[in-house]
Design a protein around this nucleic acid. Sequence first.
RNA 1: GCCCUUAUAGCUCAGUCGGCAGAGCGCAUCCUUGGUAAGGAUGAGGUCACCGGUUCAAGUCCGGUUAAGGGCUCCA
Length: 635
Amino acid sequence: MVLINLPDGSQKEYQPGTSVKEIAEDVNKKLARKAVTAVFNDKLADWNEQITENGSLRILDFDDEAGKNVYRHSSAHVMAQAVKKLWPDTKLAIGPAIDKGFYYDFDSEHIFTPEDFALIEKEMENIIKADYPIVKKVFDREEAIRFFSDRDETYKVELIRDLPEDAVITVYEQGEFADLCAGPHVPSTGKLKNIKLMSLAGAYWRGNENNPMLQRIYATSFPEKAMLDDYLKKLEEAKKRDHRRLGKELGLFVVLDEGPGFPFFMPKGMILRNELENFWREEHRKAGYQEIKTPIILERELWERSGHWDHYKENMYFTVIDEKDFSVKPMNCPGSMLVYKQNLHSYKEFPLRMGELGLVHRHEMSGVLHGLMRVRAFTQDDAHIFMLPEQIIDEIKGVINLVDRFYSLFGFPYHVELSTRPENSMGSDEDWEKATEALRQALEEKGIDYKVNEGDGAFYGPKIDFHLHDALDRTWQCGTIQLDFQMPEKFDLTYIGEDGEKHRPVMIHRVIYGSIERFIGILTEHTAGAFPAWLAPVQVRVLPITDRQHDYARQVTEELQKAGFRAEADYRSEKIGYKIREGQMQKVPYQLIIGDKESEEQGVAVRHRKEGDKGFMSLSDFILLLDEEVKTRSL
RNA sequence: GCCCUUAUAGCUCAGUCGGCAGAGCGCAUCCUUGGUAAGGAUGAGGUCACCGGUUCAAGUCCGGUUAAGGGCUCCA
């Protein structure tokens, strides 16, 4: 007999050779019906796998991450089967489960279009209805190669050839369809339901642009109809708060044909932007930063010296002035180095913090441009900090505090990643060791959990990245702190130490917003355009109910403006409901309704964007309330 | 850059088989003066992205260009 441990702590005995399925059904009939796959002794197991040794077994359903992946992966096989049936000359590449669904890459004479989706979905339904058992077969290498060669599946053959010598090669079959696959899979195609094909894309074989372009079909699947509907609804909602759409609707920013990747900021977008910059300047002044501004166009020779010419030329723009070559800056650091070199520095000045809201231009490939999220010109809230080696830890902690101050203010949760030395990097092992240790120690002293990305650092130094989480559960890398050993060398930066001798300072680059443009994009989607009052382009709208209140409304508006608020009034002869609707859609935080009662009693009826009608208030009370909200920059 | 898709009024979009350019919203003017998410009437607004081709005739079909959207990281 074999002894099986179950997740609830109980143990049961079975005949050797009992299948996972039989055990599951014995333990819990209901769970067995919902089950997708199982984990036996920490390894994913097939439903029909026979248990021959003692161990612990856990049944997985769709709610488990691993179960979800198996469900989606099996869905991908069914999609591939349908496609092969409809277009038999199609060659299969790979078809994994991904975050929110799955895809399969095909190489086919037939060019897929969205019109094919219905056809493919129909065929998939047939396959599901047929309820083909999904059967695992173990092949040795030669057999497997022969098997797929016979079927002219050249990509599969290539995959097999790249597998390690001793790999166990498994093939899963369902009906006439067979695919090279590590498994596991759901027991039969009938287990799958609610599949929807989402989109088409080109994708290079193995992600390499020198390889042939395959056709990728993205799709998703769920065990319950309600789950699929919910997912589709969420996609709709995400579309509604797309920053490109909101940017246009709210008059914030726009990207035009005349400037691909070069966004325009409209008056209201500028208010947002200026507020973000004001806040940035205020906080950086408090944190002991000085501000500089370096030129956007600088001589080619500078970029050769900094190494950008060699490492970054592809992404740079060039121009000629008086027959000399110049580059538009893609980064701020070389300019900052030149500023540092204008004086002789003493260790007593350290740490020397130089901030710059620097506009950089980078030539991004046309296909990657995306609203404000990926552009060709953007403003980095950059800073370069020059210091003594022993100041690194405290200085990093200071930057971490600043990042936390910013992200918490906007209500963004975030997580932190530490990237260590990559392959072809510069500098000595000792320097890297010291620097990485300093970053680690700073994080640990701050009590911050972090993920380590081995070998993911910049070629000039290790780094800490801050990834913020938005309201739609996506993450964005914004802040970063990078140690740089290379720039101080290349520009021969020095300071005079206590000993009167010249030494090489340690330098870090850091950004908090990352790119102001992108941060605005993220913030727009996060808040769905309903910015906190301190950022809102229009903070208050005054809405007179009839012409009788126009004079008083004008007086109120002027008083609000005098108090420093961005206020406007709507004097059109529309009904109050109409004016309110418009203000709501423009996401104005406060609307003040003014009728006879308010003008007689010299007050306002306050309507909050989210809380609705808050009733009558004296104007001075309202000013106090809004002033507090703006001053504290509350959410 | 590469693959698929798309481009019609300020915005969102319809336009069938190739045969007079459309709707809603917005905007302007007028009527309406009203109490917390759309009152009514009238009107203006178009090089159907751009260049070329087929045709008696092109928003529509074909080719090219530009731009945008979804991807090109997830690995049997």
